[in-house]
Design a protein around this nucleic acid. Structure first.
Lengths: 341, 341
DNA sequence: CTGTTAGCGCGTTCAC
DNA sequence: GTGAACGCGCTAACAG
């Protein structure tokens, strides 16, 4: 039986007014312990629990948080793990503080019908986490011009306001470290399988590569930077084309999924990994452990990324902090895809 | 600027009452085309869009659907793909019809704080999809005793009411087919790596195995049924123990993740796959393509499972259908983990 | 400490 | 066709 008891029922049965019931449930101090107990007891009997929709409408407090994610609907099953880990982290942190979660998934192939700001307004959303969004997305620009607090995962805004925070690993450093690892093994003919030119993390990682190169007195040439769009197939094709004219001893990929495409092309060219060509990835998706050979990569803790994003957003929403940059740890995982020269 | 225009603003500016605006937005027929156009134009100018929270509260129609999932928070990254595919399917089907989605994730290790019925009541949820829930879960029992329509993914209820539907592949048949495939390769000493005894799909698949055995004039012995709890580690340990006393030529696993544990134990026993022992999986998670050897398995379309669940739930909620059993296609994927004897 | 009342933004009768 | 008025279930200010 779904007999939805309302605040009125509780009030009547407890012999008080609805105002008191409301205050009892919201832990107001100005209420006698005796009536509070009485009310809670009656509520228990009636199996009453406040209706969140009504609460949301009447309360001035914002109690729902948005999660706007692009690229999950159209991503490969192989790396959708990342998104779900982020989601789990966000969910965990939000549930703990009894916020509500509203999810908006953007299919980057389709034209999105509704603006992000509109999505938020319609649902009384008090703050939102964004992931996989492009900085030049007009809807994104519109959103950050509202006064809705935002936390960005894996990207960053230059002119950030106190309402905008962001969370990521130190991509420059991670990229530099894994490049150094390759360089230290005496590789010099190195190609980079980058992602999308416009992507923030892409440029950060490129910068890390350049720093590592510079530390070794080397320079990164444009022709050795391939763009695989963070896609397996594109990475495969780009590598194939590249191998027709070049013979690198190592390829550094900016995502595991691209590393897999890279490895496929290398093998098809009759080359061995890591004997002929070393390969590195980025993210540490589960498959990297099972490929031939297992891939040396950068482990990102996506759960923590999501969790920290939700935590920081709550800080901003509750006025406990201004938007800042939160950095999450990463870890280099050495497996068998890199071999000294 | 977040200037949240309300229905009042539109009404005032269009020179009509809020009732008319509401009717214009909800496609009432009894409104002149002229004023409807006028209202839509003004709404556009004001960037107005109805507040869903208020709509949800005032409307008698149910416009949000729940998704209650257990086992995603505590599942391995390796097979959380399944859950996210289901989620994507559900999301896609729900968004299309402009329902709202409310997600409730249950950590099967922790004691859940809130009953499913309560979760639904608090949010005015009109119907819900359940996944990974145990039939003997008291909260589940409570929920199906309300009049909230439910669609169950991958499990089933005997005394089902017109408000309860369920979606899954034909597990008996799929299990029978893959067992036959092993049997046809002349394997006779076969062990089964089953999941959890209480799980619905587990028993269905067990039944499929028995049917296949019977068709070959064989019988399945209890001692050859191992229970790996749908976990890699448990499957590994059970296999290890089993191999100390038995020497099967094939092991049929009820999930890919368990097949991976099984394969690890086989390799550690100094045996080769498939030369010494053939192995099959179930689900077709991405990793199966990369293991050594790639695993022969049953492909489930989890996206479709989720999508059909949401579609069927909407039918029930809208009174267009009674709860029924929806069956989704599966496919046997033959790779290299099975070898004829 | 408690009751009353006015909203929150919208859907929905019921008159006109 | 349209407007006025009530109600959804709750919070929050105000009075007492």
């Amino acid at each position: 039986m779904l007999s939805l008891a309302t605040i009125k029922d509780v009030a009547k049965r407890a012999g008080v007014s609805i105002g008191v019931v409301s205050r009892a449930f919201n832990n107001y101090p100005d209420i006698s312990e005796k009536t509070r107990q009485k009310i809670l007891k009656v509520a228990e009997e009636l199996n009453y629990t406040p209706n969140l929709v009504a609460k949301n409408l009447s309360s001035k407090k914002q109690l729902t948080i948005g999660l706007i994610t692009s690229g999950i609907l159209d991503s490969s099953q192989k790396d959708s793990v990342n998104s779900i880990e982020v989601f789990k982290g966000v969910y965990t942190a939000i549930e703990e503080k009894e916020y509500e979660l509203a999810i908006y998934l953007i299919d980057s192939n389709k034209q999105k019908r509704k603006s992000y700001a509109q999505f938020c307004r319609e649902r009384n959303i008090g703050g939102t986490i964004l992931q996989g969004i492009r900085t030049d997305d007009p809807y994104f620009k519109e959103l950050i011009n509202t006064n809705i607090p935002c936390v960005l995962i894996d990207f960053h805004l230059n002119n950030h306001t106190p309402l905008i925070g962001n969370v990521s690993i130190n991509n420059i450093e991670a990229s530099r470290k894994i490049t150094e690892l390759v360089l230290e093994q005496n590789h010099r003919r190195i190609a980079i399988m980058a992602g999308k030119k416009a992507a923030y993390v892409n440029n950060e990682r490129l910068r890390g590569v350049r720093e590592a190169f510079a530390a070794f007195g080397l320079q990164l040439h444009e022709e050795d930077i391939l763009y695989g769009q963070f896609l397996e197939q594109a990475a495969y094709e780009e590598t194939k084309k590249y191998l027709e004219k070049h013979r690198p001893t190592a390829i550094i990929a900016f995502s595991d999924i691209m590393a897999i495409g890279v490895m496929k092309a290398i093998k098809e060219a009759g080359l061995q990994i890591p004997e002929d060509v070393s390969v590195t990835g980025f993210d540490n998706i589960p498959i990297t452990e099972f490929t031939q050979p297992p891939i040396t990569t950068v482990q990102q803790n996506f759960f923590e990324l999501g969790r920290q994003a939700a935590l920081h957003l709550q800080e901003i929403m509750e006025g406990r902090a201004k938007g800042k940059q939160v950095v999450v740890d990463y870890k280099i995982i050495e497996r068998d895809s890199v071999k000294p020269l």
